[in-house]
Each structure stands twice: as C-alpha cells, then as structure tokens.
Amino acid sequence: MTVAGQRLDKALADVVPDLSRARIQTLIAEGAVSRDGAVLTNGSSKAAVGTYAIALPPVASATPLPQAIPLTVLFEDADLIVIEKPPGMAAHPAPGTADGTLVNALLYHCGASLSGIGGVARPGIVHRLDKDTSGVMVAAKSDRAHAGLSKLFAAHDIERTYIALTRGAPSPERGRIETQIGRSSSDRKKMAVLKAGGRNAVTDYIVQARYGVPAKAGTAPLAARVACTLHTGRTHQIRVHLASKGSPILGDAVYGSGSPAGAVKASIAEAGLTRQALHAAVLGFVHPVTGDALRFETALPPDMQTLETLLAAL
C-alpha cells in the first residue's frame, strides 16, 4: 500500500486498521508516533517514506485494584460501611480517573466482603457524590444490603441534606425547587433545567445564614449558607437548582456563571477553596438488613469551614 503523500493520520489509520484515525491523532498529540526515530507532532502533515513506530500505552486493567487510602469510617458492620468522603476523591474509576477512588480504598479496607452487584468497576457503590463534593456516603458490603439500599435510593426513602455556600442567596429564604433536569442542549457535559424532557428533580432549601449583608434593605447579601434537602437524586441536582435561582455554589467552575463580589473572591482564595463549596452533611436511612434507623451528620471540611469564617467577617 502506497501512503506517501497522504495526510499522516489517515495514512497510518489505513496501514494499521486496528487503530482508528481519532486514536492515531491522540497518539500523535501524545508524542507516541515517530518516523525513523524522530517524534511526529502534526497529524495533518504529509506522510513520507520511512520507518514508523507507534508506542501504544499499556492497557489499563478493567478491574480496580485495592489501594491503601485512608478512610474516615463512620459506621461499619457485615453488610455496609458508611464513610466521610473527602473532596477530590472520585466515587469509582472512570476515564481520566483510573485509581485513587473510593472503590480502590474500599477494596483495600473491605477486601472480598465488598458487594459485587455493582460490577467489577463499581463494587459496593449504590450512590455517588461528585468528585469535588465532600460528605457522607454509604457502600454495600453484602449483596442483600446492596439490593436493599438500591431500593431505598430508588424510592427516595433516604434523608439527605447538603450544605452549600452560595453567591448571593436564593429568594425566598426557604422554598422548594421542582424542575425537569437533563443534558444541556448547548453542552452535553452539563446538566440543565429543561422546559420539556429530562427527569423530575425536587430540592427543598433554607437559607441558614447571610454574609456581607448591605445596609440597604432588600438588597441581596454577598454570600449565604444554604441547607438543601434532596427528594430526588439527579446528576448535579443541587448545583443546577441553586444556579437556576441565581445563587450558584461558590467555587463551582461548571455552573457558577458570573463572578462573586471582590471580597468573596478574596475569601475563596484565602480559604484555599479549589472546588464547589458543597458538603453532604446528613445521611439517614433504615438499615436494609437489621431494620435499625441510622443517621449520620458531619461538620464542614476545613476548606469550607475557613471560607464560612471569612464570609461571616464581611
């Protein structure tokens, strides 16, 4: 097959049919393609005569491996484990996050006792928190607990309260947000409130504190502490709902359109907050095996505590 003179990425895809053109483009961008020992960086350049080499990275294991990652365990028995997930930890492996996840930590901590209903990639996982959201999570160690917890979450028979630090404050000071949430038509990586389609999403909220309150009556505060109770569990539900009320969560790079006031922005920087200021503070449910009523409540993590202290001083 004569490929000299053709566009490089297309030529290589023709010669190596096991690799797609898109895959070839990625490998070129990663510096994994060379000709006669010289690394190639432009997939749109013309292919020339020579000896080409493609360095394929090792195939990642589809099965997560145990990792000795410290866990803050709030409760554990033979059927389930309740932990406080720190910010920055993904619930399970996904593209771009191969390890260092809660699943890797649970596999090390629980060993073979972890429920396998969730599949090899998500053993024990019955619900998730966003990677940069901290707070209480429960995982199943037995299949009967997994099935029981899944039914509770599907029926929304779970107490879940989150604390958010927001730009401004939603109005009125307490209320219910009920909308349809689905994929944004303009950005498929984001969720959005939809006029039609999507799935029903219900959040109750109450403004617990207002920070940087202007002297002029009726003027919105610079920031607020808002408690949100979930009645459904849609992807990014609280983040989307608070943003729809004009009070996005501080530090939310996805849904926090607009910039907070200068004093709030300075407080975020001083607190070292590099994520959305959202914490799953309360998780309550009936133990699916023993029938015991369980309820767990945790304080804000250090970054949110520091930010709240600074906001309260505005």
Rank of each mutant, 00 (worst) to 15 (best):
D9N: 05
D157Y: 07
K216H: 12
P58Y: 03
G272K: 06
K189H: 11
Q25F: 15
V39H: 10
H236P: 00
L56C: 04
H241M: 00
A164L: 12
L310A: 06
F296M: 02
A68T: 08
A312V: 13
G111C: 03
L40P: 00
G246D: 09
P58W: 08
T133V: 06
P214I: 13
A48K: 15
I249T: 11
T290D: 09
L74P: 01
Y52S: 00
A164M: 14
A90R: 01
A253W: 08
A281D: 02
C228M: 01
S259D: 09
P58E: 06
V120S: 05
D9K: 01
A13S: 12
G284Y: 13
A196M: 15
R239E: 01
A209S: 04
A224T: 08
V207G: 01
I24T: 02
R239Q: 00
A224H: 12
G175K: 06
P66F: 14
S44N: 14
E308S: 12
A277S: 13
A145D: 07
G258Y: 07
C228W: 05
G218A: 09
A217W: 14
L300C: 10
R176I: 10
A47S: 01
D9V: 02
A4V: 14
G135L: 03
P260V: 02
S259C: 08
G233R: 10
